[in-house]
Every structure is written in structure tokens, then in C-alpha cells.
């Protein structure tokens, strides 16, 4: 079970990195949110992956022998909620950029950082 989780997290990180290296903005933000999903999966795996036993310490024992550690699950809930809001925000952001500039190519996105002029110097503000 833990191996399946590890492989899944690895595959999702791979997909996320691949997508976020793309020039298409929508792919970039989907890639980032995939990496977030993988981080959540890793967090979940830190609760161990034993099975359906409840996290109760049996009478006479001092530590939890079987059952999932509930704390990482609480943590992952927080992380999922935060990640969801960030994904929503970034999708709207890309949509707004696409509507305003009619372009989703990351390389063409130079509104905040104009290209240098022909002579290699930064462009004069207000000339472009």
C-alpha cells in the first residue's frame, strides 16, 4: 500500500513538473496544483497506510501499533482547502490574462517586464 502511494506521488509530481514547464499558462497552473496534490498524498502517506483499523491504543499498550495516525489527515484537510483556493485563484488569473491579452503563451507575457531594446538596454518607460 505504501509503495502504491509512493509511486502515485512520484508520478503526479512528474506530471506536475512536466506541465508547469510548458509555455501554455493554463498548463502551468494545472501543473502547480498537481504538485500540490502530490504533496497532499505524501502528507497522507505519513499517517502510515495500514488499513481500516481505528486509531485506538489498545488496553495495556503504550503506543499505536496498528491504525492510521489521525493528525496528518487533519493536516491534509487544511492543505487541500488552501490548495483549492489557490488553484481557483490561479485559474481565474490565467483566464483574466487570456481575456485581456488574447494570448496564453508564457513567453509573450512581458507586460510587467518589457524586453530590452535593440541596443541591449532596458526600454524607456512609456515608449512601448
Amino acid at each position: 500500500m505504501i509503495w502504491a502511494l509512493a509511486l502515485a506521488a512520484g508520478a503526479i509530481v512528474g506530471a506536475g513538473v512536466y506541465l508547469s514547464l510548458s509555455r501554455h499558462l493554463l498548463r502551468v497552473v494545472v501543473g502547480v496544483s498537481l504538485i500540490g496534490a502530490a504533496a497532499n498524498l505524501v502528507l497522507l502517506a505519513m499517517a502510515r497506510a495500514t488499513g481500516p483499523e481505528p486509531p485506538v491504543i489498545r488496553a495495556g499498550e503504550v503506543e499505536l501499533a496498528a491504525g492510521l495516525d489521525p493528525l496528518p489527515q487533519a493536516l491534509v484537510l487544511t492543505a487541500i482547502v488552501i490548495g483549492f483556493s489557490l488553484t481557483c485563484f490561479s485559474l481565474v488569473l490565467v483566464l483574466a490574462i487570456a481575456q485581456r491579452t488574447r494570448d496564453t503563451d508564457g513567453d509573450a507575457l512581458r507586460a510587467a517586464e518589457p524586453h530590452p531594446d535593440r541596443d541591449g538596454k532596458p526600454p524607456v518607460e512609456g515608449d512601448a
Binding site: 502547480v32 490565467v94 507586460a111 510587467a112
Partner: peptide, 29 residues
């Protein structure tokens, strides 16, 4: 457009940094 452009560029690397932090926190736990 320049504000949105800045926000996107800020988002990508900073979100990645925060996610790596989450990963590291998970591992340390």
C-alpha cells in the same frame, strides 16, 4: 495586464516554494 502578469509570475514560484515547504513538513513529521 502588467498587474496580472506580475501576479502570475509571483504565483508560480511562490506556490512551488510553499508546496515544497509542505512536503518537507510532511517528511519531518
Amino acid at each position: 495586464p502588467r498587474h496580472l502578469d506580475a501576479a502570475l509570475k509571483y504565483f508560480v514560484l511562490n506556490a512551488l516554494g510553499t508546496l515544497l515547504l509542505l512536503l518537507a513538513v510532511g517528511y519531518l513529521y
